Simulated assay, not measured.
Amino acid sequence: METLTEVTWLPVCKTTDIPADGGACVLVEGQQVAIFNFARRGEWYATQNLCPHKQQMALARGLLGSAGEACEPKVACPFHKRTFSLLTGECLNGDECAIQTYPIKVEGDDVYIGWL
């Protein structure tokens, strides 16, 4: 049987705090979270800010793009060029490392992430 976890929606920033087609870091419950405004796609994403490859807080400064025929949204670490799915957190370079992703929603000019 699957256990459902209730999500708490936390306000983290304003839409104007995040650059179009870029990201920024916010502090949530003592953890760094990268928020991405993928404006070209009209989509928002949230992940951990820590790049697991070299343990650097860098993903919010990463480059956004799309991978494969399905055009899966991704972020590339600005230092190591490891790419991660913004949907699943999976490393798209074939490495076994992955990142945490979070639910995100925008209401008006407020950005919220789902915190479990």
Rank of each mutant, 00 (worst) to 15 (best):
M1S: 11
M1L: 04
M1E: 03
E2Q: 11
E2T: 08
L4D: 04
T5A: 13
V7G: 05
V7E: 12
V7W: 01
T8G: 01
T8R: 13
T8K: 15
W9V: 10
L10R: 07
L10H: 10
L10C: 03
K14H: 06
T16A: 00
T16S: 13
D17T: 00
D17F: 03
I18A: 12
A20W: 03
A20G: 00
D21G: 07
G23R: 00
G23T: 07
A24K: 09
C25Y: 04
L27H: 05
L27G: 00
L27Q: 11
V28T: 10
Q31I: 00
Q31M: 04
Q31K: 11
Q32D: 14
Q32P: 04
V33Q: 08
V33T: 12
V33L: 12
A34V: 10
F38E: 06
F38Q: 03
A39M: 02
R40I: 12
R40M: 13
R40P: 02
G42R: 01
A46N: 09
T47G: 13
Q48S: 15
C51F: 03
H53S: 06
K54D: 13
Q55S: 08
Q55I: 04
M57D: 15
M57N: 14
M57P: 01
L59T: 10
A60T: 07
R61L: 15
R61I: 01
L63T: 14
L63G: 04
L64S: 09
L64V: 14
S66Q: 11
A67Y: 15
E69T: 08
C71T: 06
C71V: 00
E72S: 02
P73F: 12
V75K: 04
V75E: 07
V75H: 00
V75T: 05
A76K: 05
A76R: 02
C77S: 03
H80N: 07
H80Q: 13
R82N: 15
R82C: 11
T83F: 02
T83G: 05
F84I: 09
F84Y: 15
S85N: 07
S85H: 07
S85D: 06
L86R: 03
T88S: 15
E90G: 00
E90M: 06
C91R: 02
L92S: 01
L92G: 03
E96W: 01
C97M: 08
C97E: 14
Q100R: 05
Q100H: 02
T101R: 06
T101W: 06
T101L: 10
T101A: 13
T101P: 04
Y102C: 07
P103E: 11
I104P: 01
I104E: 12
I104R: 01
E107M: 02
G108Q: 01
D110L: 13
V111D: 02
Y112E: 10
Y112P: 00
I113D: 07
I113L: 15
G114Y: 05
G114I: 09
W115I: 12
W115K: 05
L116P: 14
L116A: 13
L116Q: 13
